[in-house]
Design a binder for these strands. Structure first.
Length: 552
RNA sequence: CGGGACGUAGCUCAGCCUGGUCAGAGCGCCGCCUUUGGGAGGCGGAAGCCGUCGGUUCGAAUCCGACCGUCCCGACCA
């Protein structure tokens, strides 16, 4: 196939839009792949849609390859289904009414709908089943951002597995996991599979596929020795040991006028900051809870909520006053009547803590002796932590969550009554798993990972065209012949036949990032040949038309 | 939803502080000429309700207010 650039809607730009910051945003807009219609809502222009469809096709092939069956579920969904599963409270769901006043949602995921259909599975003999579809999702995002990374409308591949028991679910899960690795490898993406938070999905086990990128919403923690990778929200890494002062037989009150932070406290007492403790009061549905971490740490909210088993938010000044009788800066666990959750780093040893009296602290406070607390991993992994498996050095990388797989269990099947008869004649709820991939995010991640100062460098597997033939003046004939020869070999060819200056054509070619560029110009014409250039390496060689098939 | 920045031509921006030839530039676009292996050059041209509404003023892109929108940080987040 040959596409003539002179006829395409391919609006490349010399400048990036002023409000673009993320690399994927700048390059995809400049290259004429996408345009924003409004916040978080984008059109894929012809070139961008070709890439999107390439990614889609890779996913489709790998899904089909593990026996997952493609179908298509509607976007417009009765709200009633979401009420039945108890997800009607989620803020991000787009809601609308029809003219009769009936409620609908534009869902961000299709558990409800697919489970609605799964009610037709009635016997263990029909299991296992894996169903998927690739289609539009909507989320009423409070803040879309970073180009194609956080959108209000996007395409997703979501697959769902239905099994009779946990063991069978394990098998489905492994099939999906394998397919995910193949999909991202084929898409030319560098990624890590990590343990993750299930979030609003519910369920027990979940893994994220994180692609390191210059822009992204996740932080990937990896060990230099390759034996550890986790999202920072769940990373259990090892903190540096604290230098603790001599132990005291009981807590000792010390006046600390004007000391409000742990750093100031440590300096005032001439001790290691890690020998202090930081009190973080949070408010939950059950009232104020004290979260306690080491003075040099920050709290990881996702871990805290997981430890609490409920959502929390920082307490207000009034709530703190009422609960502690003191203000922030002098809070501590000793004498606090409510629930206390302390980080594991505070399990052993004595720490300095607030005295719940403005301007005073306690030295020699010991968990278990001076206060009772639940111990949990609450701290955010920090620079200087080491690998929990081997003690190796850790690196922290911004990453894009391109995929995620969950073991859901029976949450949706029970809520919607999707049951089957097992061999023993008993009715059981289907055991479900769900598996998602964000298409536009994957595309954005590829751009983030594979670009240089001139533009994108698509891997061949997802490039919008296989070859970019740049025709310069005086070489129109051989350029067309080259394009036709490649087309006859089954290649998709973008033929730049525009009446533009060479520099402009080359710059556009670099920007668009098709892996192979062929230049037909007077220089090569003298040899009856064309110049074949690798976009990624910049290597160029002169090739006779007859030999093109061996090179491209 | 909190904090910050911004909104002038298709894109990037100047002008605003100090109201009155301020409707401007570069790139892009259209026509002609010239040029052709890394965004050349010349001549001519089209193009903006200065985000919207309201207020102040003899007069508003410019000052004030409200609203809308976009981006960034945070909150939030399959």
């Amino acid at each position: 196939m040959i596409a003539r650039a002179s006829h395409l809607f391919l609006p490349t730009l010399r400048d990036a839009p002023a409000d673009a910051e993320a690399v994927n945003h700048k390059l995809l807009v400049r290259g004429g792949f996408v345009r924003q219609v409004t916040g978080g809502v984008w059109t894929f222009l012809p070139l961008g849609w070709r890439v999107h469809r390439k990614i889609e096709q890779i996913i489709r092939e790998e899904m089909d390859g593990i026996g997952s069956q493609e179908m298509l579920m509607p976007v417009l969904t009765p709200f009633e289904l979401w009420q039945q599963t108890g997800r009607d409270f989620i803020q991000e769901i787009f809601r609308l009414k029809d003219r009769k006043g009936a409620d609908y949602v534009l869902p961000m995921t299709h558990e409800e709908t697919v489970t609605f259909h799964a009610r037709e599975l009635q016997s263990y003999k029909q299991l296992p089943q894996m169903l998927y579809h690739i289609s539009t999702k909507n989320r009423d995002e409070p803040r879309p951002r970073a180009g194609l990374i956080r959108l209000r409308e996007f395409w997703m591949k979501d697959a769902y597995s239905f099994d009779r028991d946990d063991q069978a679910l394990g098998k489905s899960f492994e099939l999906q996991r394998g397919a995910y690795h193949r999909i991202f490898e084929r898409a030319g993406l560098q990624f890590s599979e990590v343990e993750a938070e299930p979030g609003m999905m519910g369920g027990k086990e979940s893994f994220d596929f994180l692609a390191p990128a210059g822009a992204g919403e996740n932080t990937l923690v990896t060990c230099e020795n390759g034996d550890f990778a986790a999202d920072i929200e769940v990373a259990r890494t090892v903190a540096r040991p604290a230098v603790l002062p001599e132990a005291l037989a009981s807590p000792d009150e010390v006046e600390t006028p004007g000391v409000k932070t742990c750093e100031a406290l440590a300096a005032f007492l001439s001790i290691d900051v890690a020998a202090t403790s930081k009190a973080m009061p949070v408010t939950t549905d059950d009232g104020v809870v004290l979260a306690l971490i080491r003075g040099d740490d920050r709290i990881e909210p996702a871990k805290l909520d997981a430890a609490l088993g409920m959502q929390s938010r920082p307490s207000t000044d009034e709530e703190i006053r009422a609960a502690f009788g003191a203000s922030g800066g002098s809070l501590g666990p000793v004498g606090f009547k409510g629930r206390i959750v302390a980080d594991e780093t505070l399990r052993d040893g004595q720490f300095v803590a607030g005295a719940n009296r403005d301007g005073w602290h306690l030295r020699g406070v010991e968990a278990g002796r001076d206060f009772q607390a639940e111990l949990a991993d609450l701290r955010e992994s920090a620079d200087g932590d080491v690998c929990p498996n081997c003690g190796g050095k850790l690196t922290f990388t911004t990453a894009i969550e391109v995929g995620h797989i969950f073991k859901l269990g029976t949450k949706y099947s029970e809520a919607l009554g999707a049951r089957f008869l097992d061999e023993d004649g008993k009715k059981r709820a289907l055991i479900m798993g769900c598996y998602g991939i964000g298409l536009a995010r994957t595309m954005a991640a590829i751009v983030e990972q594979r670009h240089d100062e001139h533009g994108i460098m698509w891997p061949a597997s997802v490039a919008p065209y296989d070859v970019h033939v740049v025709v310069l003046q005086g070489a129109e004939q051989i350029g067309l012949e080259a394009a036709e020869a490649l087309s006859a070999l089954g290649k998709d060819v973008l033929l730049d036949d525009r009446d533009q200056r060479p520099g402009e054509k080359f710059a556009d070619a670099d920007l668009i990032g098709i892996p192979v560029r062929i230049t037909a110009g007077k220089k090569s014409l003298e040899d009856g040949a064309v110049d074949v250039r690798d976009r990624a390496t910049g290597e160029e060689q002169r090739v006779k038309l007859a030999d093109l098939g061996n090179v491209v």
